[in-house]
């Protein structure tokens, strides 16, 4: 564990996003402190997923995407000249909504795929695979079948494999875009446990539609909302305790208590 990189503080300053001429996010300012889990909540279409994609420069892959503002990783602008998209994505990992293990690869090769894709040398592949799978708490389930095809796993296992795949890159920040939305309650619980364990070594940002999940896993919560025909933005940002038990804004109160969305 000593070789692991330290968690970093990530922050967004005045992030606005466009798709073509349409502005979908306006002026998002959030700070994700090191070793904290931040939940992004809000109704569908409010720009949470769009926002999380600006944090590792996946946003710019969409044709017609536009951006204003900055994202700082320990004070350095990831859109600045010192960074390229590839090195940003190595430092800031991402787990997607739907488990997406590479279907042509074995479990072991999936774990090592990031190292191969980014052109790094793999020295102690077995060790990397074991460490990553252990950190994603799936080692015991797959240790005897590392050479099986990854898609022979169940959906929940596939998602934990994808988490392990990101962990193999030793990211400082892990972004999770509704990682449990396609999973059953049992798998969801295990992933939530994993998130809590991982926060000791990295910073985590998670988009979720599940209020209980946000309360269970996160230290702080940001509530996003897009009013009709206006770009989305952050309505309220604070400790998870405050957002769920004593929100200042009426709209936050309505949302977390299930009155809309």
């Amino acid at each position: 564990m000593n070789s692991l990189t330290k968690a970093s503080t990530l922050s967004s300053e005045n992030i606005s996003v466009w798709f073509g001429q349409r502005q979908v996010l306006s002026d998002v300012n959030l700070v994700f402190p090191a070793n904290k889990v931040t939940a992004l909540i809000g109704p569908s279409g409010c720009g949470k997923s769009t926002f999380i994609r600006t944090l590792n420069r996946m946003h710019e892959l969409i044709p017609g995407a536009g951006l204003a503002g900055s994202v700082f990783l320990d004070g350095e602008d990831i859109y600045g000249e010192d960074f390229d998209a590839v090195s940003v994505r190595i430092k800031i990992g991402m787990v997607f909504q739907k488990p997406n293990p590479f279907p042509t690869m074995t479990i072991r090769d999936n774990i090592l795929s990031g190292l191969r894709l980014s052109g790094r040398k793999i020295e102690n592949g077995d060790e990397v695979a074991e460490t990553s799978l252990r950190r994603a708490s799936i080692w015991n389930e797959v240790k005897d079948r590392l050479n099986d095809q990854a898609i022979s796993l169940s959906g929940g296992q596939q998602q934990r494999l994808c988490i392990a795949r990101s962990l193999a890159m030793n990211p400082q920040v892990l972004l999770m875009d509704e990682p449990c939305s396609a999973l059953d309650p049992g798998s969801t619980r295990r992933i939530e446990e994993t998130i809590k364990e991982l926060s000791s070594s990295m910073t985590i940002v998670i988009v979720t539609h599940n209020m209980q999940q946000a309360q269970r896993v996160s230290d702080q919560t940001a509530f996003f909302l897009a009013d009709d025909n206006t770009p989305g933005g952050v309505v309220e940002f604070g400790s998870t305790e405050q957002i769920f038990n004593g929100p200042i804004d009426q709209r936050t109160n309505d949302y977390v208590n299930g009155h809309f969305g």
């Binding site: 996946m58 892959l61 590839v86 997607f96 042509t104 795929s113 990031g114 894709l117 994808c162 890159m169």
Partner: peptide, 27 residues
């Protein structure tokens, strides 16, 4: 092809070419 696979590869720090070689083409 599932765009999530391609995005998954890019999010792991893959270049366009390594993503083609290791994910798009084998699949």
């Amino acid at each position: 092809l599932d765009r999530d696979l391609i995005n998954g590869a890019l999010a792991l720090g893959g270049s366009k070419f390594s993503t083609f070689r290791r994910v798009i083409f084998p699949t």
